[in-house]
C-alpha cells in the first residue's frame, strides 16, 4: 500500500542558515502523527515545504505515490493536501458560510464560472452547513469571520480544511492562541476527525500529543532527531534531554 504522504530527504536553507536538514517523513493512510520539537526546530517550515508554499533546495515529496515536488501549491491542494495555519489565514471580511462555500467552489471548479449566481447551488450550501454543523459553527454561519472570537476562528480554519475533502491534513498548532479553557473544544474536534484522513499535527501541549498521536516525530534544529510510538518517545533519553527535559525545566 502506498503511503498517503512521503517526504524524501528534504533540504532547505535561507542564506547560510539551514532550516531543514535531510528530513524524511511518511504518513500512512489514516495516520495520526504528531510533529514536535522546540521553537525554531523547523516544523512550520516543513509544512510549508510539503504544501509547496516554499520550494525545497533538494528532496522529493510524494502524495499517494505521485511525485508532486514540482507542482504548485494550488495543484497540491486540489490533489487532496490540506493544511491549517499557525496564525489564522481566513477571509475575514466574508461570512463563515462564504468562507466554506468559496472553498467548496474552488475544490469543485465552480469558481471558473463567471455567469451563474454564487450561492444558487443548494448542494454547495448544504455541504458547507454540514461541515459547520460538525464543528458546531452553524449559529455563526452568517457572521463575518472577523466578528468571531479567536477560538471560533480557529475552528473555521479547520472547517475550511475539511471542506477541501483532504486525504492528507497538516494541522499547524490548531489550538495556538486559544485560552486553555477553550482549547479542549478544538482538540476534541481534531480527535474526532475522519479516520480515513492522514493527519500530521504540530502541537506543543504534550498531553494532547500523547493522547492523539499514534506516532511521533521529534525535530531539533532542522533535523529529525527520532521517530517512534508515544511510549518510545517518552522513554527516549535523547528526547528527554533535548526536548522534554527543557520543557519540564521551563515549567518547574
Amino acid at each position: 500500500m502506498t503511503a498517503a504522504l512521503e517526504v524524501q530527504s528534504f533540504n532547505r536553507s535561507f542564506g547560510a542558515l539551514q532550516v531543514t536538514c535531510d528530513v524524511s517523513l511518511t504518513l500512512e493512510r489514516g495516520a495520526r502523527r504528531a510533529l514536535i520539537g522546540p521553537n525554531g526546530a523547523g516544523k512550520t517550515t516543513l509544512v510549508n515545504l510539503i504544501t509547496g508554499a516554499l520550494k525545497p533546495s533538494s528532496g522529493r515529496v510524494l502524495l499517494n505515490g505521485e511525485d508532486i515536488t514540482t507542482t504548485s501549491q494550488a495543484d497540491r491542494a486540489r490533489r487532496g493536501l490540506a493544511r491549517t495555519f499557525q496564525i489564522n489565514q481566513l477571509f475575514r471580511g466574508l461570512s463563515v458560510l462564504d468562507n466554506l462555500c468559496l472553498t467548496i467552489g474552488e475544490r469543485d471548479g465552480n469558481c471558473n464560472n463567471l455567469w451563474r449566481t454564487a450561492g444558487s447551488n443548494p448542494a454547495v450550501i448544504d455541504e458547507a452547513l454540514d461541515h459547520l454543523d460538525s464543528l458546531r459553527l452553524v449559529d455563526d454561519a452568517l457572521k463575518l469571520v472577523r466578528e468571531l472570537p479567536y477560538g471560533r476562528q480557529r475552528l473555521v480554519e479547520i472547517a475550511i480544511a475539511l471542506a477541501q475533502k483532504p486525504r492528507v491534513l497538516l494541522l499547524d498548532e490548531p489550538a495556538a492562541g486559544v485560552p486553555s479553557s477553550e482549547s479542549h473544544l478544538i482538540l476534541d474536534v481534531v480527535a474526532s476527525l475522519d479516520p480515513g484522513i492522514a493527519i500530521l499535527i504540530i502541537e506543543h501541549d504534550m498531553d494532547v500529543v500523547f493522547r492523539f498521536a499514534k506516532q511521533i516525530t521529534v525535530m531539533v534544529q532542522g533535523s529529525v532527531l527520532v521517530e517512534g510510538t508515544p511510549g518510545e518517545i517518552m522513554n527516549n533519553e535523547q528526547v528527554r534531554a533535548v526536548y522534554l527535559g527543557q520543557e519540564s525545566q521551563r515549567h518547574a
Binding site: 504548485s72 493544511r83 481566513l90 471580511g93 466574508l94 467552489g105 477541501q164
Partner: peptide, 16 residues
C-alpha cells in the same frame, strides 16, 4: 467570490 477571496487573503486562496 474567488476574486473577493484573493483580495481578502491570497495565502489562503493558494492553500485551498
Amino acid at each position: 467570490q474567488a476574486l473577493t477571496g484573493i483580495r481578502e487573503n491570497v495565502r489562503r486562496m493558494h492553500a485551498i
